[in-house]
């Protein structure tokens, strides 16, 4: 994430403003990256660079709630699943309150947990990594574009 932030900040990757995401988007601060990693402003820089309608959850940044899938909770297996889903209610409510259609999250634990939560609480959200979005919104130099696009 630090790397993506630096790429975009330093112009190594350019964002095409016309391609920016239009729908409401929120960002999940993973515990390991925000509270324990100190990278919450970088995430917001990226979000604002990529999305037109970025809505923060409350509370956020280093005070954000854990998604409920951390600490190895997901791979612990099915005997913990019910409790994991119930505990995720806080996160589900937080997401619903933002009204976002997409949740961006850089952590794989959160990613899986949020997809499970979306199904469990019928949130109707799409969960995405930064790296999934960047290729949709960037402005590539010509030599990196696929051949058919160059032809146009």
């Amino acid at each position: 994430m630090q790397a993506f932030y630096e790429y975009i900040r330093d112009g190594r990757i350019k964002i095409d403003p016309a391609k920016k995401m239009k729908e409401p988007v929120t960002y999940q601060d993973p515990c390991n990256i925000s509270r324990s990693g100190g990278l919450w402003e970088e995430a917001r820089y990226l979000m604002n660079a990529m999305c037109e309608d970025f809505r923060d959850m409350a509370p956020n940044r280093e005070y954000n709630h854990c998604c409920g899938g951390g600490g190895g909770y997901i791979p612990m297996g099915p005997q913990f699943r019910k409790r994991r889903m119930q505990s995720g209610k806080v996160k589900a409510d937080q997401i619903r309150e933002t009204g976002a259609k997409v949740v961006v999250v850089p952590c794989h634990n959160c990613f899986d947990q949020l997809r499970d939560l979306s199904a469990e609480y019928d949130l109707g959200i799409q969960v995405m990594h930064f790296k999934t979005i960047i290729p949709h919104v960037w402005d590539l130099p010509d030599h990196l574009k696929p051949p058919n696009e160059e032809a146009n």
């Binding site: 709630h65 612990m76 913990f80």
Partner: peptide, 13 residues
């Protein structure tokens, strides 16, 4: 220890 805490560290704040 495994089922009721994800070690998110929010409480230490």
């Amino acid at each position: 220890a495994y089922g009721d805490c994800t070690a998110c560290r929010r409480c230490s704040l």
